[in-house]
Amino acid sequence: MQQLNLFAELAPVLPVTYYPDFLSQELANELYQHCLKLEWQQNQIRIAGKTMPVPALNVFTVMPDVITSTQSAYF
């Protein structure tokens, strides 16, 4: 028995450009250290009566004069 293919075409490959020196090593390290200081949280989700952690870390950030946002880091 052959498995049905739900998608007639493959998903398009989006163009991605890699910029190896987009950030200097110093700035990259500074941003990384800043992210380590943020209060990351892992939320819970309930599926079929079972509670499990969402596979993403979230941090709620507020900046003056900027729309409030929630950022996620997936792992």
Rank of each mutant, 00 (worst) to 15 (best):
T17V: 08
N58G: 00
Y32S: 14
F75T: 05
M52H: 10
H34T: 10
F60A: 02
F7E: 15
C35H: 05
L36K: 15
E39Q: 11
L6I: 09
L14S: 10
Y18T: 07
N29W: 10
N43T: 08
Y19K: 15
A48W: 08
E30W: 12
F60H: 03
V66W: 01
Q3C: 15
V54Q: 06
T70G: 01
Q25I: 12
A8K: 14
E9Q: 14
Q71H: 07
F75S: 09
E9Y: 15
P20T: 05
P53H: 00
L57F: 11
I47W: 00
E30F: 11
S24D: 11
R46W: 03
H34F: 15
Y19R: 12
L23P: 14
I67H: 01
F22Q: 05
I45C: 07
N29F: 11
Q2F: 13
Q41M: 09
W40P: 02
S69M: 00
N43G: 08
A8F: 09
Y18I: 10
V13Q: 12
L23E: 07
Y18Q: 08
P15T: 08
M1W: 05
G49F: 06
Q25H: 06
N29G: 09
Y19H: 15
A48K: 14
C35D: 03
V62C: 01
S24V: 02
A56V: 09
L27W: 02
P53N: 05
L31E: 13
Q3E: 15
E26I: 06
S24W: 06
Q71C: 02
F22N: 02
A28M: 08
F60R: 03
N5R: 12
V54S: 00
L36T: 07
S72A: 03
F22E: 06
D21H: 11
L27A: 09
M63Q: 02
E26N: 06
G49D: 03
R46Q: 13
C35G: 05
Y18C: 08
Y19W: 10
N58H: 07
L36E: 07
V54F: 08
F7R: 15
P15E: 09
P64N: 02
L10R: 13
V66Q: 03
A11E: 13
A48S: 10
T51W: 08
L38R: 02
F60L: 02
Y18W: 14
Q42W: 06
L27T: 13
K37R: 10
V59K: 00
Q44M: 12
V16W: 09
P53F: 00
Q25M: 10
Y74Q: 03
I47T: 15
N58E: 11
V16D: 14
K50H: 09
P12T: 03
P15C: 06
Q42T: 14
M63Y: 04
P20D: 04
Q3P: 07
Y32N: 14
L38N: 02
T68P: 08
Q3I: 09
T17F: 09
C35R: 04
T70K: 04
L31F: 10
Y32W: 08
E26M: 06
S24I: 05
P55Q: 05
Q33L: 14
F60E: 03
